[in-house]
Lab assay of single mutants.
Amino acid sequence: KLCLVCSDEASGCHYGVLTCGSCKVFFKRAVEGQHNYLCAGRNDCIIDKIRRKNCPACRYRKCLQAGMNLEARKTK
């Protein structure tokens, strides 16, 4: 099974979405830290295992598009 954000090996369902541990922690920190990420490109950066750290804005956008939600952990 692959992470729906970066296509690395998924470690489980986190915040409602099948993700790897790295994307799970990234999403939690992004939401709780209330980061205002900005993409230096055109908001279409490739997010994969190798390049997932290059653009936090696009990675966060991809987390949201996949359906990640901090509240999902509280309902399970």
Rank of each mutant, 00 (worst) to 15 (best):
F27W: 08
Y37P: 06
V31I: 14
L2Q: 14
T19S: 14
G33I: 06
R51K: 11
A40P: 08
R59H: 13
R61I: 07
K49L: 09
E32R: 11
M68T: 02
S7W: 06
C58I: 01
N69R: 13
L4Q: 14
G33C: 05
Y15E: 08
G21S: 11
A66F: 09
K74L: 15
K1T: 03
V5P: 00
Y60L: 12
D48P: 02
K53G: 14
K76H: 06
A57W: 02
G41Q: 09
L64Q: 14
I47K: 04
G67E: 04
R42Y: 08
C39S: 00
L70P: 08
M68Y: 04
D8W: 03
E32S: 09
C45L: 00
E9C: 15
D44R: 07
A30E: 05
T19M: 05
R61C: 06
Q34F: 04
K62D: 03
C63L: 01
Q65P: 02
N36C: 05
A40I: 10
C55Y: 02
N69W: 08
K24Y: 13
V17Y: 03
H35I: 08
K24F: 07
R51I: 05
R59S: 01
C3V: 00
C20P: 02
L2G: 11
C20K: 00
R73W: 07
F27D: 00
K49R: 12
R29W: 07
C63M: 07
G33V: 09
Y15M: 12
K62A: 11
F26I: 02
A30W: 05
C39D: 01
P56Y: 09
P56S: 10
Y60G: 01
Y15F: 08
Q34C: 10
R51G: 13
L70R: 14
K1H: 04
V31S: 14
N36D: 08
K53W: 07
R61T: 12
T19P: 01
K74F: 15
L2A: 15
Y37K: 06
K49Y: 07
A30G: 04
K53T: 11
D48H: 03
L4R: 13
R42L: 13
G12D: 12
K24T: 06
A72I: 12
G16S: 05
I50V: 13
E9D: 11
V5C: 01
K76V: 12
R29Q: 07
R51H: 07
V25K: 15
D48A: 03
R73D: 06
V5R: 02
C63V: 01
N43H: 07
F27K: 00
Q65K: 09
G21N: 05
E32L: 07
D44A: 11
F27R: 02
S11A: 09
I46C: 10
G41R: 14
D8S: 10
N69H: 14
V17R: 05
I46Y: 14
F26H: 03
E9Y: 06
K49H: 09
V31M: 09
S7G: 13
I47A: 03
H14W: 09
V25H: 15
I46A: 14
G21M: 10
K53E: 15
A57G: 08
Q65T: 07
K62I: 07
S11M: 11
K28H: 12
I46T: 14
Y37L: 12
Q65H: 15
L2C: 08
C3Q: 02
L4Y: 10
L18N: 06
E9M: 14
L18E: 09
V25W: 09
K62M: 09
P56G: 07
R52G: 11
I50L: 14
G12F: 07
H14F: 07
F27H: 01
K76I: 04
K1G: 06
N54F: 08
L38K: 14
N69A: 13
Y60C: 02
Y60K: 11
R61P: 01
F26R: 01
Q65E: 08
N43A: 10
I50A: 12
A40K: 12
T19Q: 02
L64P: 02
D48F: 03
I47H: 04
R61V: 15
R73Q: 08
C3D: 02
R42H: 11
A10P: 13
C20S: 00
I50K: 13
R73E: 11
C39Y: 00
I46P: 09
G33L: 07
N43K: 13
C13T: 12
C6S: 00
C55M: 00
R29N: 12
K49D: 05
H14A: 07
L4D: 14
F26M: 01
K74G: 12
Y15A: 07
D44M: 12
C63F: 03
M68C: 06
R42N: 15
K28I: 08
L18F: 12
C13P: 08
E71L: 06
R29E: 14
A66M: 10
Q65A: 11
Y15S: 06
Q65C: 06
S11V: 12
C63K: 01
Y37D: 05
G12A: 06
V25S: 11
D44E: 14
C58T: 01
D8E: 10
S7R: 09
H14E: 06
R29K: 14
H35G: 14
K53I: 07
C13H: 15
I46Q: 15
F26N: 01
E32F: 04
F26L: 02
I46L: 09
E9W: 15
C6T: 00
S11R: 09
A30Y: 06
N43V: 04
D48K: 03
